[in-house]
């Protein structure tokens, strides 16, 4: 790599957009690494190395893979979960939609494209993967992350890729994610990192299942089995 145009930040307030620095999107079959067009394999290896060696690797799935809005989403979602389970101590922090949140987001539970740096800085994330985020919001977030954090950004884009990411793959679908996973496992073995695949921890905002501390209202539609409706009898004994 002769010339690294796009490197990890912080690049400072309002950094030059990557396109102003001469970065072009890669043609089909190629990828971007630090703003240069390279073979996919090269970008995949560098991205894998970042996810394996930098602190708090995290995957940020966007709405296009989080919601089951079309038939091929399920397979892509499964491939992402397989990839996450192969990365040591990886977390999944979702970007479920793009709406502004008041008073502010919970940075441990989600990432918002309007201020992605909050989540990255709060969790001290130094390597992340964007997948399934609509391109215009991915560009916005990736530039903000480069401006204000030292996070290594990887874009697994289903379209043409993202020049603001340090490593960007294009036309990425379920098979390509699995190919990236295989490269990652290979790099992990080369680095001598031992890891048994296991799924990342669930979202910390979800309640832990402490049955004794549950409030009747938390039983949702079954609440009326505990608090009877007017005129109904409560079931106190069972055979």
């Amino acid at each position: 790599m002769q010339d690294k145009k796009i490197t990890t930040g912080p690049a400072g307030y309002m950094p030059n957009p990557a396109v102003f620095m001469g970065v072009e999107l890669p043609p089909e079959g190629k990828a971007l690494l630090y703003g240069e067009i390279v073979d996919e394999e090269v970008a995949m290896r560098e991205a894998a190395k970042a996810m394996l060696t930098r602190k708090n690797p995290t995957i940020f799935p966007g709405p296009q893979v989080l919601w089951n809005w079309k038939d091929d989403v399920a397979e892509k979602a499964q491939a992402i979960l397989e990839l996450a389970s192969e990365i040591p101590n990886c977390r999944i922090i979702p970007m479920p939609d793009y709406r502004p949140k008041y008073p502010k987001i919970d940075p441990e539970a989600e990432i918002n494209p309007n201020h992605p740096n909050l989540t990255i800085l709060h969790n001290k994330i130094e390597a992340c993967i964007f997948v399934g985020v609509h391109c215009h919001y991915a560009n916005l977030s990736l530039r903000m992350i480069r401006a204000g954090t030292n996070c290594f950004t990887i874009a697994l884009c289903a379209f043409m890729g993202h020049e603001e990411a340090m490593a960007s793959l294009r036309d990425v679908h379920a098979d390509d994610i699995r190919r990236f996973k295989d490269v990652l496992v290979q790099v992990r073995n080369e680095l001598g990192i031992e890891w048994t695949p296991k799924p990342p921890p669930r979202n910390p905002s979800l309640p832990k299942e402490e049955w004794e501390a549950l409030n009747p209202y938390e039983y949702g539609e079954y609440m009326h089995l505990i608090i009877p409706r007017r005129g109904e009898e409560n079931v106190t004994e069972t055979e």
């Binding site: 989080l66 919601w67 089951n68 809005w69 499964q78 979960l81 979202n203 905002s205 309640p207």
Partner: peptide, 20 residues
């Protein structure tokens, strides 16, 4: 559409509580 408010298989436990 209704499919836009159904999580992809396996992802429900990674969504924040208010979405669940």
């Amino acid at each position: 559409g209704l499919r836009y408010v159904q999580p992809a298989p396996g992802f429900k436990e990674y969504l924040p509580k208010d979405y669940v």
